[in-house]
């Protein structure tokens, strides 16, 4: 193992880990506020990637500005999709058994996957951004700028979100809704609105992750959401359910793990090894890696 190779792998792991982190963060935010698993979260990621691909030709080639524009567009598409799903699927099932929104979003997952396959075909579609291109030297290694930018995006956005959640009244209201919605309403918080906002933000994160992964691999396809969901779900669990910082850490860790296991153990057995390690982790730390063992109130 040489240093340049190591650096290259590290950057690759952080880039894909950053994508997982964004998916996980969105999933965790939605789960925290609505107490329901959004199983079509991966399809938001996929649909937004396709929508951005469709409007990409109209984007001016403005270098970094174009990249920013792509991210903002993806966030907007994601937020709109999220709001539609919250209103259309989750709100009507608010008082239903826990399994109901899971099954309904599974239905939505099947619907969206097959709709996109029907409209655009189930093959791989090329997805390329004009910026960032090329490589940059990191110590002795030369790594793609794209991967660094993806990793950077996956750090900056959660940091901004963290500030918004802790420093603003709306952020406090969202966290209060997640902890105890009824009491939040007693304080004057319109929890229907905070749920909608949380869902929109969570889905915007999925949308951003969708275009980043499209840029990273250079392709998008109709079933890409399933992997995203499973990896995002795993990252959320690794970090500890309901822990937003943990979700980001879990995503990055999962990405690094995958890259290093594939390089140094076996590319073929990567998934089996990663899942085995996940089970071992859960057996040892049932509350996730970052989650604290809070004594349950009996």
């Amino acid at each position: 193992m040489t240093l340049p190779v190591l650096i290259d792998q590290l950057v690759s792991g952080l880039a894909i880990g950053g994508v997982y982190a964004l998916v996980a963060l969105g999933f965790a935010l939605i789960f925290g506020v609505l107490r329901a698993a959004q199983f079509a979260h991966g399809e938001v990621y996929m649909v937004v990637a396709f929508l951005v691909l469709a409007v990409l030709p109209w984007f001016p080639a403005l270098g970094p500005l174009q990249f920013l524009l792509v991210i903002v567009t993806a966030a907007i598409f994601g937020a709109i999709a999220g709001m539609l799903i919250e209103r259309g699927v989750f709100r009507p099932l608010a008082d239903a058994p826990h399994i109901a929104p899971i099954i309904s979003t599974i239905g939505l997952m099947i619907l969206l996957q097959n709709l996109v396959a029907y409209l655009k075909g189930s093959e791989l579609h090329r997805f390329a951004l004009a910026w960032p291109q090329g490589n940059v030297s990191v110590g002795p290694a030369s790594v793609p700028v794209l991967k660094l930018v993806i990793f950077g995006t996956a750090l900056v956005i959660p940091a901004l979100l963290q500030v918004a959640l802790t420093r603003t009244q709306l952020g406090r209201a969202i966290r209060a809704t997640a902890i105890d919605a009824e009491t939040a309403r007693l304080m004057g918080v319109n929890t229907a609105r905070t749920s909608l906002v949380a869902f929109a933000i969570g889905s915007a994160l999925a949308g951003i992750a969708g275009v980043l992964v499209g840029a990273l691999y250079g392709v998008v396809y109709s079933t890409m959401g399933v992997t995203a969901l499973v990896k995002g779900y795993a990252a959320t669990i690794i970090g500890g359910v309901g822990n937003l910082v943990g979700a980001v850490a879990g995503g990055l860790l999962l990405g690094l793990f995958e890259v290093f296991v594939a390089s140094y153990v076996s590319p073929r057995w990567t998934d089996a090894i990663v899942y085995t390690l996940l089970i071992v982790l859960l057996a040892l730390r049932p509350q996730g890696l970052v989650g604290r063992a809070i004594p349950e109130k009996l």
Partner: peptide, 11 residues
Amino acid sequence: LRMVIYGALLM
């Protein structure tokens, strides 16, 4: 469109 309808009916 079969599976699209299937998903919608499930919902």
